[in-house]
């Protein structure tokens, strides 16, 4: 692990961003958090992220839009979708659009970390 992976976290619940940033930075990732979909999309066009973690249900700009924009800017990006509704249809749609994995609230941090690690490995494999 030569370089730190760049993570983006989008959730309209501010506590989620705050807590995850602290926990993930301790795990050695570079983390930026957003509570508003618009700014997140703006950021996506400016900077390159390795992994995007987004809430699905948000006002105005939802998780699917974040997923689509991220994939459009960088097809290699790994997008992990979080949602409060455990709905199969939305998860199916997210997978179809290229989501790496799906996590349902409430989740354990360890759960998310495993998924992020898997995403990191698959990123490395992609580079080889």
């Amino acid at each position: 692990m030569t370089d730190k992976l760049r993570l983006m976290i989008v959730d309209d619940e501010p506590i989620v961003g705050k807590r995850l940033k602290r926990l993930l930075e301790k795990e050695g990732y570079r983390v930026e958090t957003f509570t508003d979909g618009f700014t997140a999309i703006e950021e996506l066009t400016k900077k390159k992220y390795d992994i995007v973690i987004t809430d699905l249900k948000m006002d105005h700009v939802d998780g699917i839009m974040i997923l689509e924009t991220a994939k459009h800017k960088n097809p290699d990006v790994k997008v992990i979708v979080i949602t409060g509704f455990g709905k199969k249809e939305t998860s199916a749609e997210a997978f179809k659009k290229g989501a790496f994995d799906f996590i349902i609230k409430p989740f354990k941090f360890e759960e998310l970390l495993q998924v992020i690690k898997k995403a990191g490995i698959s990123l490395e494999e992609g580079l080889l």
Partner: peptide, 16 residues
């Protein structure tokens, strides 16, 4: 959805 969000926040805060 309405319950999962606060629960998730509580759980994350407690974990931290």
């Amino acid at each position: 959805h309405e319950l999962n969000n606060p629960l998730n926040n509580i759980s994350l805060t407690a974990e931290t």
